[in-house]
Design a protein around this nucleic acid. Structure first.
Length: 280
DNA sequence: ATCCGTGTTGCAGT
DNA sequence: TACTGCAACACGGA
């Protein structure tokens, strides 16, 4: 699921289902899920904690508890599901953690198809000091994400703009799918060197990013590898994808075949007619 | 069978 | 030192 819109959708789901509930038991079935957090600590500390609310920070999910923050990153395939104790939305052996609440028959389960996701418990109000989080850049919706800010970060680099936009220390929340979409809509070639971008290009990238991410949040995110019938978290933005996953299909704007290349190990889709390298 | 992938990190090379 | 590329993590699907 997880780029910024998908994480927002999960956070809304968590707030609707478990906000205000008090944890009564915790079980972990895959210890590598935990980062800098011992299993004993997790169990000891989580019991009797109330979930005061859940927030998103880029692709991170922040559970605000009475005395702690619990930081969840879904990576590629992680899923939080609130479901009946005896009903499993996904294969039971994919459950990595399970949280029970007082006066509540349903349980909150963390499933992970690829076991890449992480969970970390941090003392209250300390989570922004975690090194991995402290270094992150601005979300496109943040006031700090101005054209000047992006231009400063980008114009001194010779890296491909595709790579720069995936770098979460510059902008926060864009992943591979949405970067492909943003660059198509901004008509910028994914391999364009950061130093060739103008201030106007940066302003356009930010505007398009907000448009695309906002629309996707409205649509419930993008669901690509959804194999689950009745998955209540599936989104609809995949209907709006212009280039991602459309290799050799005609561009919706000009009809040219969409090209797929590899940029730093990530599948990269673009229209060779609409997105030309600058002649500099 | 081999390659690919919604993400991030840590290591190695320049 | 700073920047960059890439393997690694794990596992199902094409």
């Amino acid at each position: 699921m997880p780029e910024l819109p998908e994480v927002r959708v999960v956070v809304n789901y968590l707030n609707q289902n478990v906000k205000g509930k008090v944890i009564s038991a915790v079980r972990v079935f895959y210890n590598r899920l935990l980062v800098e957090t011992s299993l004993l600590d997790l169990k000891d500390k989580l019991v009797n904690q109330q979930i005061e609310g859940v927030d998103a920070y880029g692709k991170y999910i922040i559970f605000h508890l009475t005395n702690y923050e619990m930081i969840s990153h879904l990576r590629m395939e992680g899923k939080w599901i609130f479901e009946s104790d005896n009903f499993f939305s996904y294969p039971q052996d994919l459950v990595e953690a399970e949280i029970e609440f007082e006066h509540e028959a349903k349980v909150l389960r963390y499933y992970d198809f690829r076991r890449f996701g992480t969970l970390q418990l941090v003392a209250k109000n300390q989570w922004k000091t975690l090194p991995a989080i402290a270094k992150l850049g601005y979300e496109p919706f943040d006031k700090g994400a101005s054209a000047d800010y992006l231009f400063t970060k980008v114009h001194s680099s010779s890296r491909a703009i595709k790579t720069l936009l995936l770098d979460q220390t510059i902008l926060l929340g864009l992943g591979n799918i949405y970067v492909n979409e943003v660059l198509f809509q901004a008509k910028i070639h994914p391999l364009e060197s950061g130093k060739n971008l103008t201030l106007q290009d940066c302003a356009l990238i930010l505007q398009v990013s907000k448009d695309i991410l906002g629309k996707s949040i409205e649509e419930g995110g993008t669901t690509i590898h959804s194999f689950m019938v009745g998955n209540h978290q599936s989104g609809h933005y995949q209907k709006y994808l212009q280039v991602h996953g459309r290799e050799n299909l005609p561009c919706f704007v000009c009809g040219t075949k969409i090209k797929k290349i590899n940029v730093n190990g990530r599948g990269t889709y673009y229209c060779p007619w609409c997105q030309k390298l600058k002649k500099i």
